[in-house]
Design a protein around this nucleic acid. Structure first.
Lengths: 318, 318
DNA sequence: TTGTAAGCGTTATCAT
DNA sequence: ATGATAACGCTTACAA
């Protein structure tokens, strides 16, 4: 008991005892067993994050942001990939809950009914639940903490950017991942904004290949069936593929075809002249999730968060 | 006790009892507490992986490979980033060991003395320790299971590829991350092979910027100080940056300058004409680590692993 | 096939 | 300021 106190409440132990305890810890190489600690205290030091894909650059930086701030506070990160499937997400959620995590982070606001019930249960036990990478103001109150931005609005922003620059025949290229709801929502917002402005909007779906290759193929296909004036993509990788293909075909950008990406990945800044795109606070969402969740665990008020709105980055391709 | 048995050794429970138990589990929403299970059994269902950087595409796919195969067997993955620092690695190792993981995966074969002692301790308790992303045959026997390839050999292979194609004035561009020992070792192997062949070898160190930008800057700098005949890079991102810059400067590739990357990331196949590079079994290392570790946990013999040797991918840039 | 008792390593609580 | 005792929820070992 004195050892436990020395480690957790040093102010409640005399200096002399503390010194002896620490010396013994050093000498014996004692490391507390966290599982036992959790079992006794009911407080875990684990945060579980469920994300569609670990290898995707979209989420990797958010995970890094989360991880950086979590480790500063002595929390460990448990990662569970869902493969962009909400069914899989429910399974993973079930598995992860067995660890009694201190907080749970899930991607997006769309879940199976079962997953939603599990999350409600988690929240009912005073464990923070955070949805990141999405937010819809209308659904607040009913839901969990949302750290992200509205993808429909982002789609609207993309369309408006193109419309403002005079393009009228527009198309959105979706990623071809059936359950990437956020990409679909951007497409919906895009289409709607084009319609409102009296433009001509279409949605295409990329093949489910490696994205640079899929972008190339998409441009190839459109060349044969007829190019719009501007093309907005679900992500920079698709857009970069299209630009590379356009360069090879001698299609001038943005003269014959304007191209807009999403994500503002490094390649966007480096590609011939620069790819116009949408900057997304990837790392910041992770950091914000960590800050929010730490505050909730400490019963502190919700911290002020930086704006997490995406913004258009204008380069040479639009 | 009957519940525990129903869940873990269903063959030891009568069908009728099992049915009743499962019905109750369903009805009550019972989920076993894994912490308590571990505490009682001494067997954890957690695998800890320590990697330099979660957001780096180098490791992300290995993590995905590990994760995919782990989850199939009901093991959870705990990730700890070390920021390319072996000091940080030791800290993380200490933290992670508090969870009594079922197995530990660390990146590379170079660790602090303290970390090495901790890993020995882990192994002494019959917990598998795997070093991935590196392997040195001479150090086997003294060490842990190594899943990866020899980076010095990879450097030699890169140099030989360039030498065979007639280039004599060669340079290797290192990544600029001080503790990326594997990139340094590739550079050493490269230099040595060039020396042996009687060529002229140099090592440059890229600025520590976003890698595409650093590759651009490196090429710019070399243009001013004098280009070699061929340039090998520590990774494809640096090489891609150099190619983009060369295109803008009108330097012909491989005519005036040959360029070789490392990693075989998607961009290598898509870049103007194609970047020659070294394919690395990123996902496969993750999968192999999982298979090795599962076999060790099951006391099965070490499984046959596919070859994890990198190979040269010849494209237009060399 | 089922059930009982003990104990895993910690922390909460209360007594000293 | 320190220590004794009883949990935490499960599994092991053994008994019925």
């Amino acid at each position: 008991m004195t050892v436990s106190r020395t480690l957790h409440r040093p102010d409640r132990v005399s200096a002399a005892t503390a010194k002896k305890v620490l010396a013994s810890i050093q000498e014996l190489g004692y490391r507390p067993n966290k599982q036992a600690g959790l079992l006794a205290s009911g407080r875990s030091q684990l945060v579980a994050a469920l994300i569609p894909n670990i290898a995707s650059p979209m989420f990797a930086e958010s995970v890094q942001g989360l991880s950086d701030h979590l480790h500063e506070s002595g929390l460990e990160l448990m990662l569970a990939p869902t493969g962009y499937s909400i069914g899989r997400e429910e399974q993973q959620l079930r598995a992860v809950m067995g660890w009694a995590p201190a907080a749970i982070v899930v991607t997006g606001r769309l879940h199976t009914a079962g997953a939603r019930a599990l999350l409600e249960e988690v929240r009912a036990s005073n464990t923070p639940v955070i949805e990141w990478w999405d937010r819809r103001d209308s659904s607040r109150g009913s839901g969990f903490a949302q750290i992200g931005f509205d993808h429909r609005d982002a789609g609207v922003m993309m369309a408006r950017h193109l419309l403002e620059r005079g393009y009228r025949k527009l198309a959105y290229v979706d990623s071809g991942v059936p359950e990437d709801f956020r990409a679909h929502e951007r497409g919906e917002g895009f289409l709607e904004a084009v319609g409102v402005a009296g433009g001509l909007g279409t949605v295409y779906v990329a093949e489910r290949l490696e994205p640079l290759a899929a972008g190339r193929r998409m441009l190839q296909a459109l060349c044969e069936s007829g190019l719009p004036e501007a093309l907005a993509f679900a992500n920079d990788q698709l857009a970069a593929g299209a630009i590379l293909q356009a360069l090879e075909l001698g299609i001038s950008i943005p003269g014959q075809l304007a191209i807009l990406g999403f994500g503002d990945f490094p390649i966007a800044a480096q590609l011939a002249g620069g790819l116009s795109t949408v900057w997304v606070p990837r790392y910041e969402m992770g950091a914000a999730a960590a800050r929010t969740l730490l505050a909730a665990l400490a019963q502190d008020p919700v911290p002020d968060l930086p704006s997490l709105e995406p913004t258009i980055v204008q380069r040479a391709s639009t």
